[in-house]
Simulated scan of single mutants.
Amino acid sequence: MSDADPGLLPARLGYLLKHAHLRFAEASAQALAPLGIDGRELAVLAVLAADVPLSQQEAAKRLGIDRTTMVAMVDVLEAKGLAERRRSPEDRRKNIVQLTAHGQEVLRKAEDVRVDAERRFLAPLPSDEAETLLRALRTLAISG
């Protein structure tokens, strides 16, 4: 059997990570759909819920996305009534992005949904293996 044999795909890390991610993304999308948001929007809401008000640029940096994408994401969240831009009192060139009261409520509900979706996704694994997987992924994501 050669290394290019399709039968070996399930043994490859890239294949496994990609397909696990696709399954989880689909499950998350279905779980979040009744709230009118997707996983990317939830991530932005979670970052914007920080104790310290963040500019669009600061939020984009925390999320690891470019400024153009962040502007588009905030536009969508504003259109949904979940976030609003305000001029920074310290630097009028900056937009501070904050959650609206509706955005805070959607975030609370979405976090409950997210936790449940993660629990269901990891349910085929014994709890100690699920924790080991999460720790390993956290290590890999942070070390890069």
Results as ranks from 00 to 15, higher is better:
D75F: 05
E84F: 06
V44M: 05
Q57G: 10
L125W: 14
L137C: 13
R23F: 02
S88Q: 05
L48R: 08
D51S: 13
G81P: 01
D112C: 04
A50K: 10
L32V: 06
D66Y: 02
S28N: 14
T68N: 00
L82W: 03
L35N: 03
E41Y: 07
V106N: 06
S88T: 00
D116Q: 11
Q56D: 11
D128K: 00
D38R: 09
L134F: 11
S55A: 14
A141E: 08
V71T: 15
G7R: 06
R119M: 03
A20T: 15
H19I: 04
G39T: 06
K18I: 13
V71C: 06
A11V: 00
A20C: 12
G14A: 13
E105H: 11
T139F: 08
A4D: 13
E105M: 14
H19E: 09
L9Y: 00
A11C: 02
E105L: 09
E58M: 14
G103H: 02
P89T: 05
L48K: 08
S143N: 00
P34E: 05
R86M: 03
L137T: 15
R120G: 00
L99G: 09
R135Y: 01
A27N: 12
V113I: 04
M70H: 06
E105S: 02
P6F: 03
Q30K: 09
L35P: 05
L22G: 06
P10V: 02
V115D: 05
T69V: 10
L54R: 08
L125F: 15
A101F: 07
G103W: 07
T139W: 12
A141Q: 13
G64P: 06
S127I: 11
L9S: 04
R40E: 06
K61F: 12
R114L: 07
P126N: 01
R85I: 01
T100G: 11
L99F: 06
E129C: 12
L125P: 00
A29R: 15
A83Q: 03
H19A: 08
L107T: 01
D75R: 08
G36W: 01
A141G: 14
E90R: 07
L45W: 00
A110T: 01
S55T: 15
Q56G: 14
K61T: 13
V71E: 09
A31V: 07
L35F: 00
A31N: 09
G14K: 08
V74D: 07
K61I: 15
A20Y: 12
A25W: 10
L42P: 01
L16E: 13
P53S: 04
A50G: 12
D75I: 06
E105C: 10
G81W: 04
T69F: 04
I142G: 09
V106F: 01
A60H: 05
L99Y: 04
K18F: 10
L122K: 07
F24L: 10
A83E: 02
D66T: 08
V71K: 02
G36K: 03
E84M: 07
V71Q: 06
L133M: 15
G39Q: 04
R85E: 09
L9Q: 04
R93D: 12
A25N: 12
R87Y: 02
A130Y: 08
L8V: 05
L133P: 10
P6V: 01
E41P: 02
E129Q: 15
H21Y: 15
A50Q: 12
L82Q: 02
E129D: 13
K94L: 13
Y15V: 10
A59H: 05
T69W: 08
D66P: 09
E58K: 13
G64D: 04
I65D: 08
L13E: 12
